[in-house]
Design a protein around this nucleic acid. Sequence first.
DNA 1: TATATTTAAGACTCTTTTATCTGAAAATAC
DNA 2: GTATTTTCAGATAAAAGAGTCTTAAATATA
Lengths: 145, 145
Amino acid sequence: MLFFSKTCIYGIRAALYVASLGKQEYVPIRAISEQLNISFHFLTKILQILTQQNLMISYRGPNGGVSLAKPADQIKLIEIIEAIDGSNLFTECILGLPGCGTQSPCPIHAQWAVTRQGMQNMFENTSLAELGRQINELGLRLADT
Amino acid sequence: MLFFSKTCIYGIRAALYVASLGKQEYVPIRAISEQLNISFHFLTKILQILTQQNLMISYRGPNGGVSLAKPADQIKLIEIIEAIDGSNLFTECILGLPGCGTQSPCPIHAQWAVTRQGMQNMFENTSLAELGRQINELGLRLADT
DNA sequence: TATATTTAAGACTCTTTTATCTGAAAATAC
DNA sequence: GTATTTTCAGATAAAAGAGTCTTAAATATA
Ligand code: FES
Ligand code: FES
């Protein structure tokens, strides 16, 4: 079991890569896919989601590609996550029962609600700018090798 | 995206149900599947995993079924989770990169390691006995309705 | 021993996720 | 205008997850 879907992982990696470049220009999807070792066509479809959700801007033709739709410090990790995987992780019952809440909670709800909130706060407070900076300063990796 | 696999969710629900009964006798899988609205054959396969992992004991024939292999206060939630979904959630990189750790961390590792540890602690400290008690005392549900 | 009950085990099907492929549409450069 | 680069969109294929079905093995009881 993965925490994020593969689609979401690739989307985050791509967004972080673009953020780490800190460029004004568009970054071609092909370049991203080669740098991150992600199938070009698959990545294209994922970035289309981010574009449709107004987290990225795309441009066709020579010198085209994608870029962040806002300054990187205004894009939080949770926006990418919710755009691709939705907000299930933060709103649904961990035991899959309908209607997670204090109304008719499952046996784990009390504990899980606390843990989950901490998780959500972390993703809400982490921006692409912050992570992009660390990628550059500490030389952190975004791909296998 | 779900946090646990469906298999794991069913396994936890079944284990909690058995714990909440607090019986000495074996509980037939058919009874569990009917109470929790889970496909009998599917649940059977899931409980076989828990039996093989020595978290449950099974017995065939009339008056047979499954029961917890240890007193319910000695079975922690994390044991069920790791038996079914493995320990990926607590050990693997959230971005899917090989070898999660401080050696060659991904950009989210620092934040995630903290959050993940909190999650793991919660599952390590929660026992089936505790949850089973709450099910009975507060009338908490384990199935849809 | 015969019969009913119950788990064990494996094959099989259906659905969702992941990944690939093909062609069109848009923008640029010449 | 023509060729080139690039994203967009949809069809298709492969892999994994979820769920079903059938048969075998073990146990209890009469
Ligand atoms: S009801 Fe189950 S986690 Fe909220
Ligand atoms: S290296 Fe990515 S979470 Fe640890």
